Simulated assay, not measured.
Amino acid sequence: MSQPITALVIMGVAGCGKSSVSQALCQLNGATPIEGDAFHPAANIAKMSAGIPLTDDDRAGWLDSLANELRLAVERGQRPVLTCSALKLRYRERLRSAVDGLGFVFLELTPEVAADRVAHRPGHFMPKTLIDSQFAALESPEAEALVLTLDAATHDIQQLANQARDWWHAHSLLATS
Rank of each mutant, 00 (worst) to 15 (best):
E112G: 10
I45T: 13
A164N: 13
Y91M: 01
I45V: 15
K47T: 01
R92V: 01
N44Q: 08
S133L: 02
Q163V: 07
A137I: 02
P33A: 00
A98T: 01
A43R: 11
W167P: 07
V9K: 10
K128L: 07
I45H: 07
R92M: 06
C84K: 05
F104Q: 05
Q3L: 15
G77I: 00
A153V: 05
S20R: 05
L107E: 10
E93M: 08
M11V: 02
K47W: 01
G123C: 04
G36I: 00
R121M: 07
C84G: 08
I45P: 15
M126Q: 06
R117T: 01
H124V: 01
G101H: 02
T129L: 03
A31D: 13
T176E: 14
A137N: 04
A153W: 07
P122N: 06
A145N: 09
M48E: 00
R94T: 12
F135T: 02
G17S: 14
D156A: 05
A31R: 12
A114Q: 08
I10D: 03
F106V: 04
A86E: 04
A86T: 03
R76M: 06
A43Q: 15
L82G: 03
S19T: 15
A161N: 12
N44T: 04
D58R: 05
K47F: 03
L173R: 14
L95R: 01
A86K: 03
T6V: 06
L146Y: 08
G101R: 03
N162H: 14
S49P: 06
S97M: 09
S65C: 15
L95E: 01
A43S: 15
L146K: 08
G61N: 08
Q27A: 12
L174H: 13
R96I: 04
T176K: 15
P53R: 02
G123D: 11
L148S: 10
G103V: 06
V81M: 10
